[in-house]
Amino acid sequence: MRSDAEATGSPSSGVDRGFRLVLMGAPGSGKGTQGRLLSRKLGIPAISTGDLFRDHLRRRTELGVAVAGYIDSGAFVPDEITDAMVRERLGSADAEQGFILDGYPRTLAQVDALDRVLTAQGTALTAVVALDVERSTVIERMRTRAGVEARTDDDPEVVIRRLDIYEAETAPLIEHYRSLTRVLEMDGSIEPARLSAMISTRLRARD
């Protein structure tokens, strides 16, 4: 697999189809922002497990009640709940031509679960986009976000716990994915619009 040269130009016009992406990075690394920007650029839905969980929490659904304690304590929601939710979402009509996953997979078991879904659909990932941001920058970003959005999962103690769990359980998946698919490692501290343009340009440059 070749190494991709860094590209900073503006992406070509038109809507791309067929991109199936996983966004990886620590909590607060900018995955949500990039998911939204890339969704508009590539014409495919951004699917954030965090947003889905928070939506269920707001609506007090059965799933929302089940995950509330995990999210408030900074713990990750059990695989079986998350796997079922993602599997159902990827079966939606708007995800047939591609998707951007944000926050999933986060464990090797979830990697396997996602692979089973894609195999059943006769598809495969296009790439994993890994956002690298210094831990101190992430903590400051989430402290600011907590003040603006009043999110319980951005409490300082919860933030530290989430970062520790990410570094122990999820960061190693980037190395695992190197043998499975294309991994684009990007500097997550770059201004969001510029970073989105860089990512989409590199994706469009695929062989």
Score class of each variant (00 low, 15 high):
H56G: 04
H56E: 15
L57K: 09
R58V: 10
R58N: 10
R59G: 02
R59M: 06
T61K: 02
T61G: 02
T61Y: 10
L63E: 07
G64Y: 08
G64T: 03
G64C: 02
G64D: 07
V65T: 13
V65P: 01
V65Q: 13
A66R: 14
A66S: 13
A66I: 02
V67M: 07
A68D: 10
G69V: 00
G69A: 01
G69P: 04
Y70G: 00
I71R: 02
I71T: 00
D72K: 12
D72L: 02
D72F: 00
S73E: 00
G74K: 00
A75I: 00
A75E: 09
F76H: 06
F76R: 02
V77D: 05
D79F: 06
D79W: 07
E80G: 02
E80T: 06
T82K: 01
D83K: 07
D83P: 06
D83L: 05
A84H: 08
V86F: 09
R87E: 15
E88Y: 09
L90M: 09
G91R: 10
G91P: 13
S92K: 14
S92Y: 08
A95D: 08
A95F: 10
A95M: 09
A95P: 09
E96C: 04
E96N: 03
E96D: 12
Q97R: 15
I100C: 08
L101A: 11
L101G: 12
L101M: 12
D102F: 09
G103V: 02
Y104K: 02
P105W: 04
R106G: 05
T107W: 10
T107H: 07
A109C: 09
A109V: 15
V111W: 11
V111K: 12
D112N: 15
L114T: 10
L114P: 14
D115E: 15
D115M: 04
T119P: 01
A120R: 15
Q121N: 10
G122Y: 15
G122C: 12
G122K: 11
L125H: 13
L125Y: 14
T126H: 08
T126L: 04
A127P: 11
V128S: 03
A130M: 06
A130D: 14
D132T: 09
T137E: 15
V138D: 03
V138Q: 03
V138P: 04
E140D: 15
E140G: 01
M142T: 07
M142K: 08
R143G: 06
R143P: 05
T144Y: 08
T144L: 13
A146L: 02
V148E: 14
E149R: 07
A150R: 13
R151D: 00
T152N: 05
D153I: 00
D155Y: 02
